[in-house]
Amino acid sequence: MPHVMISSKKCTGCHMCELGCSAWHEGGFQPSRARLFADVNPTTAVIKGHSCLQTGCAKCQEACPNDAIVAREITVTPSGTFASKEKVGDSVTGIVLVVDEEKCNNCGDCYDVCPYGVIHEHPERKVAFKCDLCDGDPQCIAFCQNQYVLAVDLKVDKADRALTAKA
């Protein structure tokens, strides 16, 4: 199932992915509200990428007492290039986990279980917010665009732990 992932080895620490992600969703550049992030140690150059594995993880969905994390079908067609493009192809259809803001009551159970720290309370809307694959054009891929770096990749795994019935 499609998800984006940062290669910690390739990542240069430019944070363009966070900038693109936040501007697309929030109407302005605000990395504190990005849905993925690169944790960079400036001195040692050690970088750890954090992003949502979608149905390959789905812990938020399991934890949610209100069934607010719902599975939706999505076709991902990145406008930018990415490392595994040859393998994955131009377009991938699968499931993305999104927050149903009507059902979410900001109880915070998912914030505690996310192993990557990429689902949080939205400071204004007071509901959970997470990666939604940008309606199929991931901005993090679009802006990790140095062709010699291409650290944000589109991955497709077979695991599908999403409780699709809850969709």
Binding site: F29, Q30, F143
Partner: peptide, 17 residues
Amino acid sequence: TGRVTVGDARAFLEDIE
């Protein structure tokens, strides 16, 4: 933690890309 606005953010993103 604040935000830098640029007008129409999505149009801006397209242009920068």
